Simulated assay, not measured.
Amino acid sequence: MLWSGSSDLVWDAERMRVATDAAGVALWSWNVDTDEIALDERAHALWGASRNRPVTFETLSARIHPEDLGRVKAAFTATRGMIGAYEIDFRILHHDSIRWISARGQSEDVGIVNRVMFGVFLDVTDRKQAEETRELLAGEMNHRIKNLFALASALTSLAARSTETKAEMADDLTGRLAALGRAHSLVRPNPGQENKALLGELLAVLLAPYDDQTTIGRRLHISAPERPVGEASATTLALVVHELATNSVKYGALSAASGTLDVSCTDEGSDHVILWTERGGPALNPSQGPKGFGSKLISRSISFQLEGSITYDWLPQGAVVTLRISKTCMTR
């Protein structure tokens, strides 16, 4: 029966098993002299230990994740000298998967019977995976926030170096941020599906403001294959394209009413090659090559984020810029 004559609960083995099964608790005992460990059925299944041979601490140690083994051994050795309850979380190798185990018991030989100590194992894999997911999300959020601050700082510095008045700087910075926003809108995935922008579409959206009546085809011509562009690459490419277009509007072909811009894309080996060709603008000479902060930002972005390169040819009829971008990086 459940109740004795007093108000204390009376637990028999059957009811203890019902309770531990409901809680997902696995039971173990450890003979501190022989090192032999006895496991109940749930503990055997949890560890994947054989029921046909004796189990020792060393037997179970072979299943503990190598990165956790030293910590677990030290913790168990110290338990008898501790005061109060202890709890140790660690990973075990279970067949082809990794499980998280929480071993709990009483230290200081509390409850020891005939040199045998008792405790429980809990499978805490779901909790640990949830904690890891939260840590990853927090780390990603921290990384993105840092990137946003760094990006805002770089764009502000770039705008300050390329303008003379506050109004010009505000317009320039607004344009750069708008370019990023347009790129982000193209590549932000819809819930439940992956949605990458196409290279030609991305270039058209970024360059449309620089054509007559924002219609591609009047002064600007784009020829690009249907290549997907990932979110990170689209953001970097948007900065590069915006910088080149800004320079063209100020000093190059797009500063003249008769000037034109042709952007073509081809594949060469492991690279995508984007050729930016200006015609009909003011005469150029090599001394007008890239020297400022913006060109350095472009070069670093293409090199580190797109694993590519950028080269300039300052021809009398207009600038020719060659962008090489790794095919592997393009979809990131």
Rank of each mutant, 00 (worst) to 15 (best):
K166A: 15
R127K: 13
Q129H: 15
R115I: 04
G181Y: 03
T133G: 11
F90D: 09
G105C: 03
S162E: 06
H184N: 14
N190E: 15
K196F: 11
S153R: 05
G175P: 03
T174G: 15
I88S: 03
L177T: 03
E135N: 05
A152H: 04
F118I: 01
L136D: 12
V113S: 11
N114D: 15
E131S: 15
K128L: 03
L177W: 04
R144A: 07
G111K: 07
L180Y: 09
R127L: 14
H95T: 04
A178G: 10
E132T: 11
E131P: 14
T174M: 12
E194P: 10
R144W: 01
I112C: 14
A183L: 01
G139N: 10
V116C: 11
I88V: 07
A167Y: 07
R188D: 12
G111F: 06
D126L: 14
G192L: 08
S153D: 15
I98E: 00
G119D: 05
F90M: 00
A85S: 10
E135C: 10
I101T: 12
T133N: 08
E164F: 05
L148Y: 03
R188H: 11
S153K: 04
L93Q: 12
R161E: 12
F149L: 13
E132W: 07
H184K: 13
L173F: 10
G181R: 13
L177Q: 00
N190L: 14
Q106V: 02
R176I: 06
G119E: 09
I92W: 04
A85K: 00
R182W: 03
S97R: 01
N142Y: 10
H143T: 12
G105Y: 01
E164G: 09
R134A: 10
A103D: 09
F118Y: 07
A138G: 00
D96M: 14
A167T: 01
A154W: 00
N147I: 12
R176M: 10
K146H: 14
G111I: 02
S157L: 13
A178H: 12
H143V: 01
P191D: 14
V124S: 02
R144I: 06
L148K: 01
A138R: 00
T156P: 02
